[in-house]
Write a protein that binds this DNA or RNA. Structure first.
Lengths: 366, 366
DNA sequence: CCCCTTTTCTTCATCGATGAAGCGCGCAGG
DNA sequence: CCTGCGCGCTTCATCGATGAAGAAAAGGGG
């Protein structure tokens, strides 16, 4: 038994005495040769154990590999724990799959060099990038390769233009208006002592804690910045002083961070009667802290989230619904359009909706 | 402004008057040239906007692309709705990511030709294949390409050997013993009228309904076959007649199918006092039907699942815990080993555990 | 019967990089 | 002063396929 190396086009061609191009055509362009010869070619291929054209080589020549990538700000491991990230992936795959395109999850890393290397090395026809900070070099890495891109959430279109990628398809929501909506809901209920629990403001994590207005405005995560600005809009429209509102921020959007934030702001005096959390997962942690402290929700403490992702309904959480799955779908669709050379759609802002459930109510009287 | 085509190694080489290989080395093998020249090369590359070696071309030459694929029996869209499939992906990504490898989700399709084309065209160094039927041509397609493989759950190692892929890394659990365990639990509680709600037995879906022993044994999904066999083991050990146990089967592992199955078997007379569901998601549907029919669980009806996936704990479901995430991790790790030329580990059978919660209890007296 | 169009297959160059081997040069050792 | 070795860089072939263009055979119209 000869130690066969993998077969190539040429092996099949040689065996049959036809040209390599003909074998190629038999697989890729059936209209270019007679059905009989095609059958003979395919038979011979089967007999020799030739599995069809090597996708890598074909991809190199054609300039297409039939896959799109998804690069996420945080790593994959984090993404698989985050219902929002998963919904996004689900949406993207719902578009990619029927198009016959694979979905490559680009590995992340805390090491910036490795993150970039992963983007440089991703064998894809285009990239959906999600939730990058305004100055994330990952975007530059992707554009340098000349890869078609679609951006979800952030950077915002304006920032994309500054970065030299104007016209890049973008999908997101109006975070500022949506955030103002939840805040108004709490203010309308009568809450006057509100605190905010936020996830990260910068890709380079700065220490957890309270953030003043200057820090908030300088956040390189546009989503964070805008949601905070939305809260602020509502607070100031209610005639209150934003600088009196404690804004605590941690790193990621996880229950643990939310719990730490809730502990911190509930320890202030006077204690807040309502918590605005920048995500449902943060709110999840906040609710856990409330329970631990024996605070009844919403009688003693109101809690609101953002996203309306998986756990929100189960927790009865008041939150803002944003169509995350649809974001993934739209981004992937725009990317496939770009790859196919169809014109890029304009930035797409999807609607949000305030969902009032059981975790918000009147403030306690005292 | 010239309409630049993307830069290549040669452009940089020409600009600097060095050989292409030297530029290549500057990026890929820094030890092969002097630090000064390397700096000059990288500078020139930056200046010309050369983003580094094209991963496709490098991959072709090197025979590596730095990504592994995951091919799932059902499509991606389905996978993203299934907590079990997601846990598997999460496990795989937890291994791939630190190794710097991308994870390509291979698109599925109901059309067999397109499914195969996707496997033929996947630009990866190896493939994790999950839950394939014993005769799924996808496996042959993968082996024909000479791709390293790792198999999760099914086909079983014995079948892999028959298919000409002996020694392929395999990860799974002892479904038969685990299933026998849940069944014994119900029997020990005193249940004598048990019914089974199963997902598909064959990739080619055959009509929903009750399946006799012959059909059960002929199931091409080894997981289905073995779990049923496990139930049977327990039933017969209890001295009961397996042929008297109604076994209903639908297509997928979804709550809808579970609900349909529950409706069907609860409509039989005498009605069963306990339902053995082949997955938690089927059980989820069964519980919904019980609620709809006004049956108290577990007083009027006991329900058991399989997997201990996401919704199980929340539902208080009695089930079998299997370490799905760990399956994904182990499979990906074995695959990366194979790609790196390290010896393949032997088939790995992970432990399972019966988790008794609130949905199983004594049968009603009547 | 000739010319022109199709069909069918071939030739050639190329996609963008990297492994293997080679060559010149400076330096250490005898 | 010659040999030998390692460093630094180059040359050459190749990875496995496909686009563009061309040539031979087949069909069709006048």
């Amino acid at each position: 038994m000869p130690a066969d190396r993998p077969r190539t086009l040429r092996d099949v061609a040689a065996e049959l005495g036809v040209s390599a191009k003909t074998v190629s055509n038999a697989f890729s362009r059936p209209d270019q040769l007679s059905p009989q010869l095609r059958e003979r070619v395919l038979d011979t291929a089967r007999r020799l154990g030739y599995p069809g054209p090597n996708p890598l080589a074909a991809g190199l020549r054609r300039g297409r590999v039939g896959a799109i990538g998804v690069a996420y700000d945080n790593g994959l491991s984090y993404a698989f724990d985050d219902p929002v990230a998963l919904a996004l992936l689900a949406g993207a795959s719902a578009v990619a799959e029927p198009a016959g395109a694979g979905l490559l999850l680009v590995p992340g890393s805390t090491d910036a060099r490795r993150r970039l290397a992963a983007v440089h090395g991703a064998v894809v026809d285009g990239l959906v990038v999600c939730s990058l900070g305004d100055d994330d070099p990952l975007l530059a890495a992707a554009t340098a390769r000349g890869l078609p891109l679609a951006v979800v959430d952030q950077p915002r279109p304006a920032r994309l233009a500054e970065l030299g990628a104007p016209g890049t398809p973008w999908v997101g929501v109006d975070d500022r208006a949506a955030a103002a909506g939840v805040a108004e809901h709490l203010l309308a209920l009568g809450h006057r002592r509100i605190a905010v629990v936020s996830f990260g403001m910068h890709a380079e994590p700065i220490e957890r804690g309270l953030a003043g207005a200057g820090v908030q405005d300088a956040a390189t995560y546009a989503v964070t910045r805008d949601r905070l600005a939305g809260y602020r809009d509502a607070v100031e429209r209610a005639g209150l002083d934003w600088s009196a509102v404690p804004v605590w921020h941690g790193e990621d959007s996880t229950p643990d961070v939310g719990a730490a934030g809730a502990e911190a702001v509930l320890g202030l005096s006077p204690a807040p009667t309502a918590l605005l959390c920048l995500s449902d997962r943060l709110a999840e942690g906040a609710l856990a802290v409330a329970a631990r402290r024996g605070l009844r929700v919403p009688e003693d403490l109101s809690v609101a989230g953002f996203d309306d992702a998986a756990p929100a309904a189960g927790l009865g959480l008041t939150t803002v619904r944003q169509p995350v799955r649809e974001k993934g779908r739209a981004a992937a669709a725009a990317l496939l359009d770009a790859i196919a050379g169809r014109p890029a759609p304009p930035p797409l802002t999807l609607p949000t909706e305030l969902v009032v459930r059981a975790t918000t109510g009147l403030p306690p009287e005292d």
